[in-house]
């Protein structure tokens, strides 16, 4: 039985949490002052890959396209997943890439990885760009079966197939769970609600073991890291960077704020009297509401 080979594509994003993020006076993001972290959706994808390691001892390769500083984010990804290999695709000609040109770089990089990938994971979307396109586009370029919104998966390493649960919207109904079986290889865009489940003590012990190994590995992460440029991954210069990006950002506008139509009353305090007032208000509004 061949070992399972998985790759994860991740993205470095600004940390939007209070205390870490800085804005310029004009309301735009102050990139110099804001810390960069592993994007929250990428982190979920990394978690999903770690699950394959615990269940099947899968080999994990994590890659990203970004500036040299992105290596600390790869270190963090390794800490989360005990990744065996880290790839940073960094080149000045990658600059100005839209999702399509980024997908080209990631595709070229994944093809250059050791061994054939059985699964490639990506996050659902990025928290800064929010397009959700890079994953599907990379899948398309790789010619892999694309499975989006995946909330759970089980690999059968023997028959080389995968069963996944997808959270989809079907005929206008939200949150329908669809179960799909597909032959490997597949490309999985992981759903934000994904949570790995471990049901046995031995799996949990393996989890602890790999986590410890991950702590050791990530302290020495450069040993596992390869920084590659466009030539090294043999990316077609016409399809990458600004020249490979058909997207034109014409203008960025602020979303106008709608006028508030509600009349809010601020009730301050948590004592009994204030809580009674809140409950009374809720009763009052509910009484006028018709629940169908």
């Amino acid at each position: 039985m061949d070992p399972v080979n998985v790759a994860v594509i991740v993205k470095m994003e600004p940390d939007f949490s209070e205390g870490n993020v800085s804005y310029n006076p004009d309301g735009t993001l102050n990139r110099a002052e804001t810390k960069n972290i592993l994007g929250p959706h990428s982190a979920i994808a990394v978690n999903a890959a770690f699950y394959a390691k615990i269940k099947h001892g899968a080999k994990i390769s994590i890659c990203t396209m970004g500036p040299p500083v992105a290596e600390s984010m790869l270190q963090h990804s390794q800490l989360m997943s005990d990744a065996d290999e880290l790839y940073l695709y960094s080149d000045r000609i990658f600059a100005g890439a839209d999702t399509l040109a980024t997908a080209e770089v990631l595709k070229s990089g994944i093809l250059k990885m050791q061994g054939k990938m059985d699964i490639v994971f990506s996050g659902h979307r990025a928290s800064d760009g929010e397009t959700g396109q890079t994953g599907p586009q990379t899948a398309w370029k790789l010619g892999m079966t694309f499975l989006g919104n995946v909330i759970d998966y089980e690999i059968d390493p023997e028959s080389r197939t995968i069963r996944v649960k997808r959270l989809v919207r079907l005929q206008g109904i939200y949150d329908v769970v669809e179960e799909v079986e597909a032959p490997l290889p597949v490309f999985i865009a992981i759903d934000p609600s994904y949570k790995p489940k471990f049901n046995t003590v031995s799996q949990r012990l393996a989890y602890e073991k790999y986590q410890k190994e991950a702590r050791q590995r990530s302290q020495d992460f450069k040993q596992y890291l390869k920084v590659l440029n466009a030539a090294q991954i043999e990316a077609d210069p016409k399809l990458i960077g600004i020249s490979g990006s058909p997207t034109i950002v014409y203008k960025v506008e602020r979303i106008p704020k709608g006028k508030a139509t509600r009349q809010a009353e601020i009730i301050d305090g948590s004592d009994q009297e204030q809580i009674r007032r809140i409950v009374a208000k809720m009763r009052q509004s509910l009484s006028t509401m018709v629940i169908k």
Binding site: E18, G19, N20, S22, Y23, P25, G27
Partner: peptide, 9 residues
């Protein structure tokens, strides 16, 4: 909000 965030930081 910007000031509040900056103060927290």
């Amino acid at each position: 909000m910007r000031i509040r965030f900056a103060v927290t930081k």
